[in-house]
């Protein structure tokens, strides 16, 4: 059962989180944010400020820069964002070593997402958690269903944007990185990403129930009920979405109010309060 159902919360007042995610390349937002009054939709700092004022509970930057030069731009961008947003900021993408994590934290990220590198070498999670504390290490897991219809459900980790099959069982991997000291798991269902057909609930629940750390559900959000399902049925602690917010389909405030109306404990006091 979800810990965030208001009627069952008892002596727990923690709220489920809504996290907008921005893809950035060379310091620019790839899919610009479509908001009225936003002067430069490609400027990550401007986008971050909008989401900060809109009541987002955290913000996530996913760096899809390929070049080495782009890393410097990213750090600069993170630093400018952290200067103006007094909310938690997660930055992921391209993290290969302890030094990459350190650079992002020093620039102002609160949490750092490790993806492919954790798959190649899970020990990196332990090394980073030991150095910086497990609260700031988010392991990003990209998983896809590999079982056929009629077989017991099974998901595998995929890397390189879902193209490379690793043969690693997603649930087993989640348990392993949690043991290694990950503070949180960002779970993206690759077969749903971009489809707008909703989270892969079976996958989300299988992983959320298997580990004792918070799980962020990601991939496939097309409407506000999908966010509700991620928390109530998927047992996630947070939901991450990109396009439904960027293109102005829904505001963060609408999302949180809708989730609250469906019985989920939400923070409804964060709008434009500074």
């Amino acid at each position: 059962m979800s810990n965030f159902l208001i009627e069952n919360q008892g002596n727990n007042k923690l709220k489920a989180r809504v996290i907008p995610c921005l893809d950035v390349r060379d310091g620019r937002v790839v899919k610009g944010v479509n908001f009225v009054g936003l002067k430069d939709a490609g400027n990550p700092v401007e986008c971050a400020k909008v989401y900060d004022a809109a009541g987002a509970d955290e913000l996530c930057f996913l760096d899809i820069t390929a070049s080495v030069e782009g890393r410097g731009t990213l750090l600069n961008m993170v630093s400018q964002t952290a200067e103006q947003c007094f909310m938690p900021l997660t930055v992921g993408g391209g993290v290969r070593a302890v030094e990459d994590v350190r650079a992002l934290l020093l620039a102002g990220a609160d949490k750092v997402g490790i993806n492919t590198s954790a798959v190649k070498r899970p020990e990196l999670v332990a090394e980073c958690a030991e150095k910086f504390g497990n609260q700031c290490i988010v392991v990003a897991i990209d998983a896809k269903r590999v079982s056929q219809d009629g077989e017991p459900l099974r998901w595998e980790i995929f890397t390189h944007g879902g193209r490379t099959k690793t043969g690693i069982d997603a649930v087993e991997f989640a348990i392993k990185v949690a043991d290694f000291g990950a503070g949180e798991i960002l779970l993206t269902s690759m077969d749903r990403d971009g489809t707008k057909s909703g989270f892969n609930i079976a996958l989300t629940r299988a992983i959320a129930d298997a580990v004792n750390i918070p799980v962020i559900a990601s991939g496939g959000v097309g409407n506000l009920d999908h966010l509700v399902e991620g928390i109530i049925d998927g047992h996630a602690s947070a939901v991450l979405a990109a396009s439904i917010f960027h293109f102005g389909d829904y505001s963060v405030e609408q999302a949180k109010k809708h989730m609250h109306s469906k019985g989920i404990a939400m923070r409804l006091d964060g709008y434009a309060n500074h």
Partner: peptide, 14 residues
């Protein structure tokens, strides 16, 4: 006591 509560305690609380 409730084993379903995740650790770390992470997020917004009253």
């Amino acid at each position: 006591d409730d084993k379903a509560l995740k650790i770390p305690h992470m997020g917004w609380n009253k």
